[in-house]
Nucleic acid binder design. Structure first.
Length: 401
DNA sequence: CGTCCACGTCTAC
DNA sequence: TAGACCTGGACGG
């Protein structure tokens, strides 16, 4: 469940399901979990949740009781405790009866009811984590959904940070500035503005204002106050807004869908799937970025696109063939290394093998096969939410200059 | 059966 | 800039 919208929906879920519910006893952890214990025990407490970017905070609040005088009753909590969660790739909350505990329920809060129910932090892959007496992770920036103004300011005032030397698609995953953006959101956001993913981030962001011009003035035309040359640059997209604004509005679209956002196993995933315009959509292109994450996009990849094709696929293939070298016609054959300036074919054939191939071919959507049930092509949408070709060329958001 | 892929961090060479 | 950390679903043979 894990980008900003899913984390927030998770906090809404907890608040809804646990409203009025009294919890009791210790917080229990699964045997297999390596995350820290949550040393909280209380006769009667409540649970509320809030979210910030890609974190959720649960607040455990002891209830007042008559015998609060004997509060020191053997380690019973009398102070509230915050537990801060990160969801990794597969975390979510579920509130169930005790005998319906989900598989991979790794942290559990038990209700004080005749038929006990349990709030579980479920996390199949266990990449998620929690921290008792936790605080928002200090290195993460403001929430781009619910601290929009400070989010903007944080980006705009730090553009000299070397972090912005990277391609925009990679910077969008930097939680120090984009707390809440994940792999599907970066694809959707860049797609909507037609920004090539591998364009230098600073060139896309410089010139943007700390304040959102879109929000204050609808007419927006009243920006006459400052027409010094850079007119062109600051022409905000009337309809959509600039990149930073979309980092705010696009995640909110997912939140406003209700449901649970990205969760292929759920039935109501179809609505989310239909919402996606780019990520994993048939006909879109994809490339591994410099961190090995798949970037989905349409059109031009941009100047900083990885040249070297060091995909995991290539590695595996290398292993397999590393003994029978001459069988390696593989697929590199087609590319035709026309202008390879360096004939120096390094030993690591895997990495250099196809450094100069035509961009176009290797990056067309990799899997032609059927996709996982949950990810099928856009089903019966009469209007496939703006086809690729439909947009290409238009709205050319000249990134840099 | 095996390989590849997945919504994200982390820390170690 | 690799890997490590994990489980499980979809495919391919």
């Amino acid at each position: 469940m894990p980008e900003g919208p899913e984390l927030h929906l998770g906090s809404l879920y907890v608040n809804k399901m646990c409203a009025g519910v009294v919890f009791t006893g210790p917080v229990r952890k699964s045997e297999v979990s390596k995350s820290p214990d949550v040393p909280f025990t209380c006769e009667a407490y409540r649970i509320t949740a809030s979210s910030r970017g890609k974190e959720v905070k649960l607040t455990l609040t002891p209830m007042k009781s008559d015998d609060s005088k004997q509060r020191s009753k053997a380690g019973q909590a009398d102070q509230a405790m915050d537990v801060v969660f990160r969801f990794g790739m597969s975390g979510y909350f579920r509130f169930t009866s005790e005998d319906e505990l989900p598989k991979h329920s790794h942290l559990r809060f038990y209700s004080k009811e005749t038929t006990c129910r349990v709030l579980s932090f479920v996390d199949t892959r266990r990449f998620g984590s929690w921290q008792a007496n936790g605080t928002w992770q200090p290195d993460r920036g403001p929430c781009l959904m619910f601290e929009y103004e400070s989010f903007r300011k944080n980006v705009v005032t730090h553009l000299s940070d070397r972090a912005f030397d990277r391609p925009i698609c990679e910077v969008l995953l930097n939680q120090k500035y984009f707390n809440g953006i994940g792999n599907y959101l970066r694809a959707e956001i860049l797609f909507r503005l037609n920004i090539p993913p591998f364009v230098p981030a600073r060139s896309v962001l410089e010139g943007l204002e700390s304040e959102d011009l879109c929000e204050n003035e609808k007419p927006l035309k009243t920006e006459i106050k400052d027409e010094k040359a850079s007119d062109r640059v600051k022409t905000v997209k009337e309809e959509t807004g600039d990149l930073l604004r979309l980092c705010h509005t696009v995640p909110l679209e997912v939140v406003n869908q209700g449901g649970k956002g990205y969760d292929p196993k759920k039935e109501d995933y179809s609505e989310f799937k239909a919402w996606l315009q780019c990520y994993y959509v048939d006909g879109m292109k994809s490339l591994r970025d410099h961190n090995g994450r798949t970037m989905w996009f349409n059109g031009d990849p941009g100047p900083m696109a990885p040249k070297d094709l060091k995909s995991p696929k290539a590695k595996k293939r290398a292993k397999k063939t590393e003994d029978h070298d001459y069988t390696d016609k593989k697929k590199g054959a087609k590319g035709g290394s026309k202008s390879t300036p360096k004939k120096k074919v390094v030993k690591q054939e895997t990495k250099t093998a196809k450094k100069e191939i035509e961009k176009s071919e290797e990056m067309v959507s990799p899997q032609k096969k059927k996709r996982p049930a949950a990810r099928g092509r856009k089903t019966s949408s009469a209007e496939p939410a703006a086809g690729p070709e439909k947009r290409s060329g238009r709205v050319t958001r000249q990134s840099s200059k």
